[in-house]
Nucleic acid binder design. Structure first.
Lengths: 195, 195
DNA sequence: TGACCATCTGGCACTCGGTGTCAATGAGGC
DNA sequence: GCCTCATTGACACCGAGTGCCAGATGGTCA
């Protein structure tokens, strides 16, 4: 690994750490890009060379996690009910990207309380949806070129919606109940006959 | 009705008409507020006195429609299955806010293709979710102060997600299939044992 | 009719997020 | 040492959105 890559990774981490600290103390909207740049010791312009938007600092690695979920889904047994397979795939991808539970909780609260972050978060879920739908279509035996077969999209989108609802409730409850339990309860309420 | 209200309504309609025409021809992102203001014969500043954001011109009346859906939901029989009641409430609120089907289709496509519009649209759905959840909680007999009971939120959010999926498919299919049919198919795929 | 108040309006300056450009700097390979 | 290329900071620019203020206009009361 060249020096360029190393310094780039270091700066990347420095921006992330500095930004999150500012976000969690001052609040997301109250923190400007200039604040971050000054605190991280870089120029305003360079910030945008590492992150496309301010929201990407918080939600940047969500795209990566979507790929993990897709892999987990494809690893599920072929005959399994698609809904159950989706739930299992989500279960198997624990959030290992956070330093501590308190930090993860604080981030969750911030995302769900900040409109722009909430919107971006849902956009990321739409990306996940696009990543997971083909596999569900295959399992359903749906014609890949039929734009009118909405079953796969509906299943994937609803499971992700359950995850979103569970995440919001988890934040409201200050993490006192495991996120997985909330997700299971949400999924069971929507899709009656499964775990 | 005073002259103030009448002129205000007139200006409101003029901005809406002019904006939509520009959006549908040039595209949403390619149309600036200055373009709209110039075409509508008002000042840039006045535009923001009628609409909080550019997206509100397209999605402004969605909040109103959410209230209609809530009323339709509350009018459903008390013993009805919550999921079916939600679906029926959505069915009963047809989109009467569009001049023609082609225009409605064009607006749908624009919303689903423009990230900022898509995000705002989802935010509006979150508002609907907040409006509809209390009634579903009541029907489920859930404790209103229990933040851990996610069943109602999950049901409402999933139904709205099905509507979103159906809307997207409807746009992809150029409106060749009734939106209601797509919604029913999506809802049936998610919530197995109902129409 | 004239005075008075509320409302609406346009114009200006400003903040903030995000982008294009360009010259300077420093690492990597020859 | 030299050439190339990625990275950087600085500057200018754009568009969305807000705060402020002076002026115009409608509504109301005397």
């Amino acid at each position: 690994m060249s020096l360029w890559s190393r310094t780039r990774n270091a700066v990347y981490g420095e921006i992330t750490r500095t930004s999150m600290e500012l976000f969690l103390t001052r609040g997301f909207d109250a923190t400007t890009i200039d604040d971050i740049a000054a605190a991280a010791g870089i120029s305003r312009r360079s910030f945008f060379r590492y992150f496309g938007t301010k929201e990407d600092v918080v939600l940047g690695d969500l795209a990566t996690r979507g790929d993990l979920i897709r892999q987990a889904l494809e690893a599920r047994p072929d005959g399994e009910d698609p809904w159950d397979a989706l739930c299992a795939a989500l279960h198997s991808v624990k959030d290992a990207a956070y330093g501590s539970d308190e930090e993860m909780l604080a981030v969750f609260k911030m995302v769900h309380q900040t409109p722009s972050l909430r919107a971006r978060s849902i956009e990321k879920h739409l990306q996940w949806q696009a990543m997971l739908t083909p596999e569900i279509r295959r399992r359903l035996g749906a014609d890949p070129s039929d734009p009118l077969d909405v079953r796969a999209e509906a299943l994937v989108a609803s499971v992700l919606t359950c995850l979103d609802v569970a995440g919001e409730a988890w934040g409201r409850a200050d993490g006192k109940v495991p996120l997985e339990d909330l997700f299971d309860a949400a999924a069971a309420a929507v899709h009656g006959g499964s775990s």
